[in-house]
């Protein structure tokens, strides 16, 4: 079986036989999910409405699942966006991690410029299915007017408690990590992007982030071959994440330290 790229290959062996058996399924599971989704029709790059769905595979088994659970999947994310007549993209993200127990819903707007800057206000809703008295959280975020060339990012709870997420210079671009799925296709000609500010999950401000191109990766699945374009995104408080795009400009795979997001469906 052809190996996966090192940045997404977590089919490592382990001292524990049970764990070994499960993790050896990683490559098989990865190829099945991605192969099935890539066999469907790609979405028109210029479509006004598109949705991509990803399965979350754990990069490391130990500690994140019950010992009796042999299903690799630890969640999913749906990235739905729609462009309106004023060239503003409306995003709706539904993210669920069955290991943390939290479901996350995000609603936000981005300008259609290449760096997809956040505009207007945004909403964060969480719901916790894990044990504990924490049930849910609702936050509304917004920019504040610039003062002395600085704009602050604030969130407000349903009870009116204001939380400052941070501040950036008025001429800096602030985007959301989920908009990177649309930023990268515009950088496919091996262009990097420096000093980007990312509002991670619309709440954690990560400044001085970089997008750097990687070597190409030919993903082989049976008789099919796909050439992926790679990027690495990292910055302050952001250890490297690895992104792989299809020739059509869709993110096929994205890998963080603990999770590999594998494309499992798309629609427009």
């Amino acid at each position: 079986m052809n190996k996966l790229h090192w940045s997404v290959d977590y089919s490592y062996s382990s001292k524990l036989s049970r764990t070994k058996q499960i993790q050896e399924n990683f490559q098989e599971e990865f190829k099945k999910i991605l192969g099935d989704s890539l066999s469907s029709s790609p979405i028109d790059f210029n479509a006004k409405r598109k949705t991509h769905r990803y399965t979350l595979l754990p990069n490391f088994w130990s500690g994140f699942k019950s010992g009796e659970d042999t299903n690799l999947n630890i969640g999913q994310v749906s990235i739905e966006r729609q462009r309106d007549e004023s060239e503003i993209w409306r995003y709706k993200i539904e993210h669920e991690n069955t290991s943390s127990g939290e479901a996350l819903s995000l609603n936000f707007y981005c300008d259609s410029k290449p760096a997809r800057p956040l505009v207007d206000s945004w909403q964060i809703f969480t719901k916790n299915s894990a044990d504990g008295s924490y049930n849910s959280l609702s936050l509304t975020g917004k920019w504040n007017e610039q003062i002395n060339g600085v704009r602050s990012v604030k969130m407000t709870t349903a009870n009116g408690l204001v939380i400052v997420a941070g501040s950036i210079k008025h001429n800096e671009t602030l985007t959301c990590n989920w908009a990177i799925f649309d930023i990268l296709p515009l950088l496919r000609e091996s262009i990097s992007m420096d000093r980007l500010a990312i509002l991670d999950d619309l709440e954690v401000l990560k400044k001085d982030c970089y997008i750097k191109p990687l070597e190409a990766w030919v993903f082989e699945n049976g008789n099919e071959k796909y050439t992926f374009t790679g990027f690495c995104v990292f910055g302050k408080g952001l250890p490297p994440t690895y992104w792989w795009l299809t020739e059509n400009g869709e993110v096929a795979v994205m890998s963080t330290m603990l999770t590999t997001y594998v494309l499992n469906g798309r629609s427009s």
């Binding site: 130990s62 290991s99 943390s100 916790n128 504990g132």
Partner: peptide
């Protein structure tokens, strides 16, 4: 009182989660 400890109590690792 338990406020939050993960779906299956947090073991040694998993900061990202």
């Amino acid at each position: 009182h338990n406020l939050y400890t993960g779906k299956r109590d947090i073991g040694a690792c998993g900061g990202e989660y």
